[in-house]
Design a protein around this nucleic acid. Structure first.
Length: 511
DNA sequence: AAAAAAC
């Protein structure tokens, strides 16, 4: 079996790898590192969770040992599709670069330019960036890409999904062709193959057997539910409680950002130790939520698909699909957050009558039928007329019977109820939850409860037209609906604390 | 029925 020492890495790097507790390289590392050290282009085909990041970070450190960076001229560039992934790669440089003196700059959106510019000015050995912010810096003239010796394109197929390919092409053309290119993708659709033909020079192809769709160590179950959000939330709570101590930590996926916020608030109200993660959250809150979840301070993370792929969150015992994903491949990515490295994991998907089409597609794709936990949809009692739905339905609806979140929201402010949905007790309710149910200003979209209790003024009544356009990339038709959404969702981005979030707010609620 | 990413 290969060892790290045989790969040709410098002693400084080997020491750091050993200190990090690794002895044996993964297949992608064993395949890619020697090629990269020989300055060959590499085409790495590997999923996340295969040790892919180290397979470019380690050889990069090795090659960076000679020479040093000049102002505004980074020596290497790594492109990542999401901010979290970019930050995660930076962490890898910290971990494996403990014995090196290298300057790493992280260029991602959602945070201020100033510090990023300072780091560029100081001379960056490694630039880790999402495409938009990188080009933004470039257009401002803060950055020259002519000194880049190594270019890494990570998660190329995801970049494709996200429409980044034109940006990637543009960036590639700004970098001298004498560079070395390391290119990673989990799949190779035609567009990606074309891209590699365009930008790689006789690459060494390193392919890691794809973890056959879904890991065998993951127990998958379907759970029936009526369609209404409060029904689904109750089903979820029951599931979480039924798992008891088996549930160490879990990611709960929703299809929409708005539902992430809503479910997060609901879970917290019910006394669960939960956080939230989606792309409209303030970057700082995103980072904090993620690190708190990784550190075990948060047990549950309600997330959009921003968390479905790539994020290195070891040891998630459970994945819940609060919504079943619309695209079958997302199902695989989501449940791939558990059952990693041979450990066992459980994945529960809440299914309503409207979901069967997507469920069929998923089962077809993974090539198996997923078992129902407790009877399939046909065993679902007729839901409409139950006391439960009746009561909640009234509270959740506006005069015309259409859902009016804004109204619902204000009602909650005015006369908060002790228990939102059915009076399920919180699982391990110990701490003083009453504060959460006390009258309070609008509970912010993004962060934990502490915020609401602070004297942050309730946000001024309806939005003036002007500043609604921050997120105008929603659908074109249906202005009415759109307004509803915004009124609820478009809280002043987290809390209006600007860059200075008081520390206590970032402390998750431990119960 | 979506999310992500620049301002």
């Amino acid at each position: 079996m290969t060892t790290f020492a045989e790969l040709g890495l410098s002693p400084k790097i080997l020491a750091a790898v050993e200190a990090a507790g690794y002895t044996t390289p993964t297949p992608i590392q064993a395949g890619a590192i020697p090629q990269a050290l020989e300055r060959k282009d590499v085409l790495g085909i590997a999923q996340t969770g295969t040790g892919k990041t180290a397979s470019f970070v380690l050889p990069m450190l090795h090659l960076l040992e000679k020479g040093r960076a000049r102002a505004r001229m980074p020596r290497t560039l790594i492109l990542e599709p999401t901010r979290e992934l970019a930050a995660q790669v930076e962490e890898n440089f910290v971990k494996y670069g403990v014995n090196h003196r290298i300057n790493v700059a992280l260029l991602i959106g959602g945070v201020s330019f100033d510090e990023q510019e300072r780091k560029l000015e100081r001379g960056a050995d490694v630039l880790i960036a999402t495409p938009g912010r990188l080009l933004d810096h470039f257009e401002r003239g803060k950055l020259l890409l002519t000194g880049v010796e190594i270019l890494v394109i990570d998660e190329a197929d995801r970049m494709l999904d996200m429409g980044f390919i034109p940006d990637i092409e543009r960036i590639c053309k700004l970098i001298p062709f004498t560079r070395q290119t390391l290119f990673f993708s989990a799949t190779m659709p035609a567009e990606i193959t074309k891209l590699t033909e365009q930008f790689l020079h006789s690459p060494a192809r390193v392919e890691v057997a794809k973890a056959s769709t879904t890991a065998k160590t993951v127990t998958q179950r379907l759970v029936k539910s009526a369609k209404k959000p409060w029904d689904k939330r109750a089903v979820l709570r029951d599931l979480i409680q039924a798992e008891g101590d088996d549930l160490k930590n879990a990611i709960i996926f929703c299809n929409r950002k708005m539902d992430v916020s809503e479910l997060f608030r609901s879970l917290v109200k019910h006394g669960f130790n939960a956080g939230a993660l989606h792309g409209d959250m303030d970057q700082r809150a995103r980072m904090t939520m993620l690190s708190n979840f990784k550190d075990g301070n948060l047990q549950l993370l309600v997330a959009s698909d921003v968390a479905a792929r790539g994020l290195d969150i070891p040891d998630v015992s459970h994945v819940f699909n609060y919504d079943i994903p619309i695209h079958a491949e997302d199902y695989v990515h989501r449940i791939g957050r558990t059952g990693r490295a041979g450990r066992s994991g459980k994945a529960f998907s809440i299914i309503t009558g409207a979901d069967t089409k997507y469920l069929d597609a998923i089962e077809k794709m993974i090539g198996e039928k997923i078992e129902w936990l407790d009877g399939d949809l046909s065993t679902l009692p007729a839901q409409e007329e139950t006391e439960e739905t009746g009561r909640r339905g009234r509270n959740n609806r506006g005069k015309n019977g259409k859902k009016s979140r804004d109204k619902d929201h204000k009602e909650k402010q005015a006369q908060p109820r002790v228990a939102e949905e059915k009076t399920a007790e919180a699982p391990q309710a110990v701490a003083d939850i009453s504060a959460l149910n006390a009258p309070q200003p609008v509970l912010p979209d993004n962060v934990s409860i502490g915020t609401a209790v602070t004297a942050e003024p309730v946000r001024p009544a309806p939005h003036k037209n002007g500043h609604e356009d921050r997120r105008q990339n929603h659908n074109q038709n249906g202005q009415q609906n759109k307004r509803h959404r915004r009124d609820f969702d478009d809280e002043p981005s987290p809390l209006g604390f600007g860059d200075d979030i008081p520390a206590f707010m970032l402390i998750p609620i431990n119960i």
